[in-house]
Structure formats: structure tokens, C-alpha cells
Amino acid sequence: MLAYVIRRAVAGVIMLIVMSIVTFALFFASPIDQASFICGKNCSPAQKQQTAAAMGYDDSFINQWWDFAEGVVKGRDYPDDPKLRETAPETIVHCEAPCMGYSRERGDTVTNLIKDTFPVSFSLAVAAFILWIAGGVLLGVTAALKKGSIIDRGLVGLSLIAYAFPTFFVGLILYKFVAIKWGLADIPRYTSIADGGVGGWLSSLALPAITLAVFFMAGYVRMTRSYVIESFQEDYVRTARSKGLPERTVTFKHALRAALTPIVTMAGLDFAGLMGGAIITESVFNYPGMGKLAVRASQDFDLPTTVGLVILLAAFVIAANIIVDLLYAVIDPRVRLG
């Protein structure tokens, strides 16, 4: 088990390294010149070269990546200029390990940027996750158990509608009607637990979490429904009935146990993906999360922030994958890790 985790973790780290190289390479391959982008419109070639040298952009691709990698391990100074360290140490920003880089546009280390935005995205993802899993699985099971009834058809129809509505539309409707027009909720503004207590934190999350959950919930209702219906066709459910078990035991002990296993996989991966994927919701509600940060970083051609976010999110997905596989081994005795 431990050996399995270590092996998967090592593979994950290798994957992260490869991803960082690819992200670097994509930026280098793009037609936009970093230095002139920073230097501005009216930049003479000499100024441009100076900027490039100061930022280290004149260095080779490999060296730049290596500096980055070293920074992740050891930490790094920006700018890394010994002369400046002598004369004006206050202008140097030290970025501690693990240093993901320094964003000139934001004027802060990427680590700090992520520290600021991560709690927002994570809170949102957790709240949405709980809503969509609870709602999606419950409604999906209900639909499957009442297969063919009005309840089933209603749920399937509703989930199709919910699935079809774009997130920004749902978000705006909630924002405009529930919060502003009817005043049923506060106008959403992110509040941390430190600022508003648990109650304030939760109520600040309600609308964006619902917005985010609606889309996923719709998918999970349909998925759960089909897994449960499929599971009722299994031979072992027939065996359970032929033993004379009450229908309740057949449903909960035999059919659902097997049906819900694949949902664990889906849920784990969707949760990890959501960490950086709530871009639209964060934008609609103007929440300072990682999704919004990622959009701005790519608009501004902010390489360090982009690389930092890509690696962090990739790490989430990889970790979620490992956790899901471990969970699977716990749930299903046929799965042996090794």
C-alpha cells in the first residue's frame, strides 16, 4: 500500500516536471516577446534589451526553466542581482521555497498570490461539492428507484434543463433575482471564517456554490440514475431477492453499494478539476479565486503565475487520482494495489 503510494507520487512528480516544461515551452513558442511586453509600447531596442537582461529573459530556455526549478526547491530573489543586493536590498523581493516565481504584473510572488486566492476557490469547491454530491446522488437514486414514474421523468427533464443552462446565466439569475431583487440572500461577497465566522463564510458562499453545483448536480443525477438502474439488472441483485431479503436490504446493501462506487471516481476527479475550473462563477460573483487569477494571468501574459497555477492544479488532479484509487481499494475487495 505504502509502496504503491510512493510509486504513484514519484510518477506524479515526474508528470509535474514535464508539465512545467511544456508550459514554459508554450510561452517561449508564442509570438509575443516578453521583454517588449513588460517594457511597454515606446520602448527603444536598448531599453528592451536591458529589461530582458534584468528579467533574465535573454537567457536560454533551459536555463530559465532551471532557475525556476531551483527556486521551487531553494527559494529565489527577484531580481537576482548581486549589485542591487549591495546597493538597494530593499528593492529585492525574496521568494521562499517553494518559490513558483514572481509576478511582475501583480507585483507579488506567485506563492503569495495563490495563498490569497486558494481559500476562496477551495471554499467554493467544497461547498459546491457537498451540494452537488448530496443532491445529485439523492435525486439520481430517487429517479432510478421510481424509474418510469412522473418523478423520474421530471427529474431527468429538470436535470437536462439545468445541464443545458450556461453557468454564467444561472449565476446572473441568482445574483440579480435572489440577491438583489428579492433580497433573499446577501449580495455575495467572499468572507473568510476569520472575518465573518463560520456563518458569514457559509452565507457568503451560498449563491456561487449553488450556481456551480447546479451544473454538476444535473450530470450526477443522470449518471447516478443510470448506474443504479444498471446495478438492479445485476445477477447478484437477483440472488439477493431470491434469498428472500426485504426490498430495502436489496436496494441499500446490494444494489446501491455497487452502483455508487464509480461515482466516487468521478466525484474525486471533478472536485480536483473544479479547483481551477470555477472561472465563470468566480467572475460572475467577482470572487477573488484562482480561476479569476488564472484568466487575468493568461490575459496579461504572466508566465510565472500561469506556470504556478498550472502546476498547482495538476498536483491537485494527480493527488485526487491517487486518493480515488486508494478509496477504490478500500471499497472494492477485488482491487488490489500493487
Partner: peptide, 8 residues
């Protein structure tokens, strides 16, 4: 048949 250990 691979071993389940760290190095398979």
C-alpha cells in the same frame, strides 16, 4: 507476475 513492492 510483478511484485507489489516499490520496484516492481
Amino acid at each position: 507476475v510483478k511484485s507489489p513492492g516499490l520496484f516492481r
